[in-house]
Design a protein around this nucleic acid. Structure first.
Lengths: 346, 346
DNA sequence: TTGTACGCGTTATCAA
DNA sequence: TTGATAACGCGTACAA
């Protein structure tokens, strides 16, 4: 077992000083061609690689980005990570991942662990519990210590930093308008409780779209699911709720769901009730994931371009990190949504 | 913007030496209660946290695990990560993720970046290209430098290290036996080319199960999909192939697919051809993911317990890291599979 | 009870 | 052309 070789060892072996070795390896003109070659040959032989940790300590830069997301077993978030990783690697950065599991305390702990020197900056999406408690001190403190944050998707006005979001309002208006164009008269929405910022915005888009088309919004057509708990039997409750929705509104001919799971479940329930898709009921979901693509019938969705969000976030963060003068100028990048038409609409 | 505070700064402020501060913070008996309290109060006020990088350099331990996986937008892999992260955090470790994107060179580069001090050990699943080229020098070199590796799922005999695998052979036998018990007479398999170790093993399990039940295996019932390229239009080819499979074997009444995408696609094609599931054709897929669960009909699967694999891998690696004498004893943990019966079988 | 010195691996500066 | 020294931030053995 040959341990990793260090400058010191090379220096000892070749009977020169550490700094000579260091310079020789970096092709410094100061060193004679003779020793340079000798050192480089030796280094190559022993496969010398500078120790990242030592470099980080010296440069006060880790070249590592910390990602904090609520959940990784989730198509949207994993796609964002892929985007971040792509850009990060291209620009010489690594990516370290922390999961909050939608919990406030895990979010705080994870951030504290990483903020103590392990990373240069954060890219994160806020946990539901944090959104609910509206306690953002860990974000503001991190920023005030000089560590930049980029938030994506689940963001919050109270924290000043770069943000990458989808135009949820516009996106859901697009979706509802599409349903209306395709002939829907009675459109229901399956959404989340309002504390989830994106859920709230998407509900608002639904209402505005109806309003602009002179369709009266009915409270009975709005189903707000409480998904505080990401539990297994949560699904049963969801199905029951949707069933009730259909049964108390027999004339529903369009469904807009704020995520693909809700949409898929709605289709399932509809089918169970003898309704055909898209003939009797048309369905559109927000978030384009695997479920939508491979469902039968496949689901028409509002694509968020998750990977692009990740890429943008990484670009923003790294630009911020590598710019000398850190001006207090924060930008919010809005990623355009796109309707992907599949079989669940006519 | 208050920069992160260091021992040195605290020492200067309080007019004591750095080591006094260090000791005081670690509650050393050497320090008088007086100064101890003074230092601790000050540290608390300025929210002092030791710098991880400095600690890593000093202790020659990073308390960080490197994960290299072929793809993150994948239910199985993200579940494994969740398992790793869970155990890692519980035991005081962080997790840094590198994606090989199924490419040999990206796998090598990623490992080299992380191996130079950034992490204490690897947990990885081998990329397809690496499996195809059968070039494992980067693994063996890493190990010979004293950095432990735990491989999961896609492993290889040529590399000596801890491994966590699913009993693919037994799992697929279970699946095929289930189909036989449920009355299937003509069972086809949709699998990968043989260089994917798990694909090969699952095919083998299929053959053995047939053999043990005195059913003759027919070459025409074995569809080996070439999924070297994870491309979008790959799906079309897949559908075509499956369609051909059905049409040239009209009596197929059972399908065993080595992953859920193949299974779902098979169901889709079957339905298109007017076949009912599970009445005409029963389907079982390997790998239990979201697609299986939310498909219509929902898919009977062989669950690999991905999260458990991640947890086991992390336990194995951390145990290895924290044990003093590193004996050259490697173990392979086999995670039992489990048939999860849903609607795609009778 | 407190402080000094050293080392982890590296690079930059300055002296020889 | 080469080498010694300091510094990044920390902990600890040893000296005062």
């Amino acid at each position: 077992m040959k341990r990793k070789v260090t400058l010191k060892q090379i220096a000892r072996e070749l009977d020169v000083s550490i700094s000579t070795v260091s310079k020789a390896l970096r092709n410094s003109k100061e060193i004679s061609e003779d020793t340079r070659e000798k050192v480089q040959a030796f280094a190559k032989l022993y496969n010398y690689r500078p120790n990242n940790i030592a470099l980080s300590l010296k440069n006060r830069k880790t070249k590592t980005i910390g990602i904090i997301i609520p959940e990784i077993v989730h198509h949207f978030f994993s796609k964002v990570i892929r985007g971040i990783e792509l850009v990060a690697n291209k620009r010489g950065y690594n990516v370290i991942v922390g999961l909050s599991n939608e919990s406030f305390s895990k979010e705080v702990i994870n951030m504290e662990m990483l903020a103590n020197g392990s990373i240069d900056g954060f890219i994160l999406s806020i946990s539901k519990e944090t959104l609910l408690q509206q306690d953002y001190h860990h974000f503001t403190e991190t920023i005030s210590q000089g560590m930049p944050i980029v938030m994506f998707d689940r963001v919050v006005n109270e924290v000043l930093c770069d943000k990458v979001i989808v135009d949820d309002l516009k996106g859901s208006k697009k979706a509802v308008n599409t349903l209306i164009e395709k002939g829907c008269k009675t459109i229901a929405i399956i959404t989340t409780k309002d504390y989830v910022s994106v859920g709230k915005l998407r509900t608002q888009g639904y209402l505005e779209a109806l309003n602009e088309n002179d369709i009266k919004a009915l409270g009975s057509l709005i189903l707000k699911v409480d998904d505080k708990l990401v539990s297994e039997d949560h699904l049963d409750v969801l199905e029951k709720d949707i069933e009730t929705l259909f049964e108390s509104n027999k004339d529903i001919d369009g469904i807009f769901a704020v995520n693909e799971l809700y949409a898929i479940t709605a289709m399932k329930v509809a089918r169970k009730l003898g309704l055909n898709i898209p003939e009797d009921v048309q369905v559109i979901g927000f978030t384009d994931g695997v479920l939508s693509k491979h469902a039968t019938p496949s689901l028409t969705t509002v694509s968020q371009h998750a990977q692009q969000m990740g890429e943008q976030s990484a670009e923003l963060l790294i630009n911020n990190l590598e710019i000398e003068e850190d001006e207090d100028y924060y930008q919010t990048v809005v990623i355009e949504t796109e309707i992907i038409e599949r079989e669940s609409t006519k």
